[in-house]
Write a protein that binds this DNA or RNA. Sequence first.
DNA 1: GTCGATTAGTTTCAAATGAAATCAGCGTCA
DNA 2: TGACGCTGATTTCATTTGAAACTAATCGAC
Lengths: 155, 155
Amino acid sequence: MKSASSDAADFLLEDFLPYELSVAANRISRLFARRYSEAFGLSIAQWRVLAVVGRHQALSPGQVADATEMDKVKVSRAAASLVERGLLSQQTDPQDGRARVLRLTEAGRAIHSSIVPLARDLEAQIEARMAPQDWAALRPALRRLSMVVAELEGE
Amino acid sequence: MKSASSDAADFLLEDFLPYELSVAANRISRLFARRYSEAFGLSIAQWRVLAVVGRHQALSPGQVADATEMDKVKVSRAAASLVERGLLSQQTDPQDGRARVLRLTEAGRAIHSSIVPLARDLEAQIEARMAPQDWAALRPALRRLSMVVAELEGE
DNA sequence: GTCGATTAGTTTCAAATGAAATCAGCGTCA
DNA sequence: TGACGCTGATTTCATTTGAAACTAATCGAC
């Protein structure tokens, strides 16, 4: 005799945490991507680069990659397109000729101060529709989950 | 004077829910993808198709797409590769010549009963490393979040 | 100093993705 | 019954992705 939970035929994808997480993340990314694409013509990668460069005054692409959890190829391309659009400046680091220094331009600072409220607004819209205890529980649980998975990944 | 929360320069990407969710989901997907690729040579898309076809006896590609939240192109390709590998059978639906019926083959049933325990195991490993209240809170909060975002998407 | 190893960033190329076009079969209404 | 629209699924094609190769510059050992 088999116990219910060990029977493969009973496996429910929709109750499987990695699946639920992936679905939720994809939905929110689509929503987010659509809003930023419509309002500013920005991809999520570009948005992330603007957000972290706006927060710290000057960052290298490598630092941006660390801060955004994106790979260096993605950062390189996002930064190139933002430089192209005149939102970012990229100079060779005077201390290290291999490295680059990314900064917001004036136009970049302007767009940065427009995109951040939209992000806060989106988050607030979500929060407003959730039960306070769900909302409050989500962030620490998610953070813990991220840590746990990072550990498992590294093994 | 500006309040702290409305100053764009103070925006912290790492405290932004959509970002945190995306990071957590990507990490778990990478871990999951690596394990299934190593152990069975399966992609996540293929894994999902096997999981839902294994649960329901016979499904059309469209039903699989609904059940897995994947688009029909992805399902079509995943199913084709599984048929290729002899894990799935695909026949024309006798009731409707446009539709197809996907079923597990014998080999498919065998692999299905191997992959499900690995999924449960992975989930259990994560659960074991989380505080019980975080774990317990995560699922309902995530489900609610998914619903909320789906609503916002549809507007 | 200079040579090999390493690091920062970019580019290349093959694989994955998904929107739109296509194909095939069903239903219906005149 | 046959023409039109609709639906299920696949294919095409342009775009995105990321691993690996490449370029350029620093670092460290001798």
